[in-house]
Nucleic acid binder design. Structure first.
Lengths: 252, 252
DNA sequence: CGGCTTGTTCTTCATCGTAGAAAAGGTTAG
DNA sequence: CTAACCTTTTCTACGATGAAGAACAAGCCG
C-alpha cells in the first residue's frame, strides 16, 4: 500500500480518486461520486466538471459520467468490473442477510487486493465500507484466497515481486488456504477485526474474492464452518451468475 | 474547444493537465513540469507526488516521472509521440528561422487536433504557444490537412461521428485541401489570425500536421506559395527523419 | 572537493476550495 | 396535469488548505 504523500493536496486527491473510480466502475452519477468521496454534491459536481474539461471523463445524456479518452476508451457500462459488481452485489446482500455480518467484494489487481464493494450488516457495531481501498493481496484473507486460486505460473509471477524472505512463509500460508478452501484472519493483521475470505473464479483466469468481516469481540470459532459454507455458496452463486465475459480489464 | 468550467478548481486543473502532459510527452522532470504548468517547483513536486500516489505516474530511478498504470502502461521514453516531438522540433525551428512566423506541430487524435509544440517567431507581434490545447480537427487548417491525408476508411470513420449536416461541407472542404496540398485559413475561424497547415505522414497511417500562424494584419497573399513550399519541405524533412516506428499510441 | 543544478522538505499566509443554500431540471404517482 | 420528490447545477461566503519561497538534501562534473 502506498503511503499518502507527506504534502498531499486534498482537492487533487479527490479528483484523482474519482477518476480511478470511474475506471473501476464504468459510470456514475454526481450523487454517487459525492457519497463515494465523502464530499458534498456541489464539490463532486465541480470535480466531475474538471475531469470532463481535461478529457478524463465524459457525461452521458442521462447525466451519468463515465471515463473519458485520457483514461482509455473503456466503453462505459460494458466494463467487466462493472458487470462483476452488478452480478455479485445481490448475492453479497443475500449473504449478509443470512449471516448479518459485513461482506466485501474484492478483485486481485497485480499484487494488490482492491475492495470493490462492501455490503454492511445491520448490527450497530459492524465493519464499515472499505470500497476503493487496496491492500497488498498477501495481507488480507480474501487476498490470500485469491492468490491461492491462481495457477502456479500466476502465483510464481506474483511471488517474484516479493522479497526473498517473504516468499516461503507466503507459500506455506497459501498451501494451507488451498487445503482449507478459505482464509481466516482472527485479529492478526487488523486488530479488532476478524475476516474470512474465499476466492471467486472469473473468466480468463481472473480472480475475485468475497470476505466476511466481523468485530473480533463478536467472533465465535464454532461459527466458522457455517460461515465458510455460506461464503462458498455465495462465491459459487456469483461464479454461475457471471456470463462468460470478454477480456477482463482488471487483474494481471 | 472546451470551455473552462465556471467553477474551476485550479489545483485540480494543474494536476490533470500534468497527467495529460505525461501521456503526451512520455517522461519529464520536476522542473519541466513546473515550467510547463507555470507553477513553482515545490508545487510541481507535490502534484507529481499525488499523481504517483494515485497511480497516474511513476518515478524512474533517474528521478524522471512517466505515466502510471491508470494512464495506460505507455512504456515511458519509448513513446512515439515523444519521438515525433524530438524529431520534428529542430525542423520546426528551421522553418521559423526561414519564415519568421510561429509554427505549430499537431497530431490527430480521434476527431481532434492537438497542439503538441509551438516554436514562436522572434517578431514582437506573434502567435503564441498553444501546446496542450485541442480543437476539433475540422476547425483548424492543420487539422483539415491531417484529415485530408487520411485514407477513405479512416475519413469515413471520423465523418460518421459528425452530424449529418456537417459532413458534405467538410468533404468538399477536404477535397479542396487534397487538391491544393495545404489548408489556408485567413481569419475565418480565429479572427486576427491566419494559418496554413500541411499534413505529415507517419507510420501506421497516423497523421500529424505542421502549421504556420501569423497575425492577419501581417498576412500577404502573395507569400502563400513560398510558405507552402517551406511547409511542405519541412513536413517532408520530418517524414524522412522519422525512423520507422512501432505501434503509434496517438491517433484513432 | 567545491560549485552548480535539481529534487525534496518545511512553513506561512492569503486566496481559493468546500459546503450549504438556492435555483433549475427531471421523474413519477395520484 | 400537478405536486412531490429526487437529482443536478449554480452561487456565495469563509476558514482551511494550496502555493510558493526558503532551506535542506542529493547528484553530477570539472
Amino acid at each position: 500500500m502506498k503511503n499518502k504523500p507527506q504534502y498531499a493536496i486534498e482537492s487533487v486527491d479527490n479528483a484523482l480518486h474519482l477518476a480511478q473510480l470511474l475506471v473501476l466502475e464504468g459510470s456514475m452519477r454526481v450523487s454517487d461520486a459525492a457519497s463515494r468521496l465523502g464530499v458534498s454534491v456541489s464539490t463532486a459536481h465541480r470535480l466531475l466538471a474538471m475531469l470532463v474539461y481535461r478529457d478524463f471523463a465524459e457525461q452521458d445524456p442521462d447525466k451519468r459520467y463515465r471515463p473519458g479518452p485520457v483514461l482509455g476508451s473503456a466503453t462505459s457500462s460494458d466494463l467487466p468490473l462493472s458487470e462483476l459488481r452488478h452480478t455479485a452485489i445481490p448475492h453479497l446482500q443475500r449473504l449478509v442477510d443470512r449471516v448479518n455480518e459485513s461482506a466485501n467484494l474484492l478483485v486481485l489487481t497485480g499484487t494488490e487486493a482492491r475492495f470493490v464493494h462492501t455490503v454492511e450488516c445491520t448490527q450497530l457495531l459492524r465493519v464499515g465500507d472499505r470500497s476503493g481501498k487496496t491492500l497488498p493481496a498477501y495481507v488480507t484473507r480474501a487476498g490470500k484466497a485469491m492468490l491461492s486460486a491462481l495457477d502456479d505460473d500466476g502465483l510464481d509471477a506474483i511471488l517474484a515481486e516479493l522479497d526473498e524472505g517473504e516468499r516461503a512463509p507466503l507459500r506455506r500460508s497459501l498451501r494451507a488456504v488451498r487445503q482449507n478452501g478459505f482464509a481466516l484472519n482472527n485479529g492478526q493483521t487488523e486488530t479488532e477485526l476478524t475476516a474470512i475470505g474465499v476466492s471467486v473464479r472469473c473468466a480468463n483466469d481472473r480472480v475475485a474474492g468475497i470476505s466476511l468481516a466481523t468485530p473480533a469481540a463478536r467472533f465465535e470459532r464454532d461459527k466458522v464452518a457455517g460461515w465458510v459454507q455460506e461464503l462458498a455458496a455465495c462465491a459459487r452463486a456469483v461464479e454461475e451468475s457471471l456470463v462468460p465475459l470478454g477480456d477482463v480489464v482488471w487483474g494481471r
